Computed example of a mutant assay.
Amino acid sequence: MSSATVDTPEGGFEFIVHDDHHHDDGEHHHETGTMLGFWIYLMSDCLIFGILFAIYAVVGQNYAAGPAPVDLFELDKIAWATAWLLLSSITYGFSVIKMHENNKNMMMFWLLVTGIFGAAFLYLSVEEFMHLWHIGAGPGASAFLSAFWFLVGTHGVHVACGALWLVVLLVQVQIHGLTPENKRRILCLSLFWHFLDLIWIGVFSFVYLTGVLL
């Protein structure tokens, strides 16, 4: 709480009290509401991916006399894509640390590195999909491939949206600096990015490793 005196039209003084604590409470409630809403969104995304994993578990071995995972998946490239995405999660953590230190330049640097790793992951994912399409292993070839394309494709779309969000954040921070609103957005994207990493670990283990090694 702060106070100040101002001149009145009659030549006297008026004592004004500013309730800074009320303003801080309002900001705190707004931040809490934003983070809670974003957690609810992530839970809805969990349901979507849970359904896609369940579909793959049910029909993932229905090859319709077509190619099986061992015939299609190149684990070396998938391992590189996994490494890029996991590294991007680490570099995003570095950017959050620098954000809390109010080090704008280093925060933006680590966000940029995160974006580069994310772009490398997307490049390898698109390359894999183009290869599968070229050899006739599209989503209509079998139930297995339909489930695979929808699961992996949905994750890829999420990563692409996250990368676009990251670029927008870089522009906003460059223009407006590390405002409370931008910090809140960076934390929301952090939750989203780490969530996508966890989903990909499930995809890599359940779809790729299980399909090729078992």
Rank of each mutant, 00 (worst) to 15 (best):
102 N>L: 10
79 A>M: 05
43 M>V: 05
57 A>I: 04
87 L>N: 11
68 A>V: 12
63 Y>T: 13
101 E>N: 08
141 A>S: 13
80 W>A: 14
125 S>E: 14
49 F>V: 02
137 A>D: 01
102 N>M: 12
68 A>M: 08
96 V>W: 02
124 L>H: 11
38 F>S: 09
125 S>N: 10
104 K>Q: 15
144 F>T: 08
145 L>G: 04
65 A>V: 02
146 S>N: 04
48 I>C: 04
122 L>N: 06
140 G>H: 10
68 A>P: 00
94 F>Q: 10
53 F>V: 02
37 G>D: 02
147 A>F: 00
57 A>R: 02
158 H>Y: 03
81 A>H: 05
148 F>M: 04
99 M>L: 03
52 L>Y: 04
35 M>D: 06
76 D>L: 09
120 A>C: 11
80 W>F: 15
113 V>L: 12
82 T>E: 15
57 A>E: 15
36 L>R: 08
122 L>Y: 06
50 G>F: 01
105 N>M: 10
84 W>Q: 09
60 G>M: 07
52 L>H: 09
83 A>T: 07
64 A>E: 14
99 M>N: 03
121 F>K: 08
126 V>G: 13
70 V>D: 07
55 I>D: 15
105 N>E: 15
88 S>D: 02
56 Y>K: 09
149 W>V: 00
159 V>H: 10
75 L>Q: 09
92 Y>F: 08
57 A>M: 12
84 W>N: 15
57 A>L: 11
73 F>L: 02
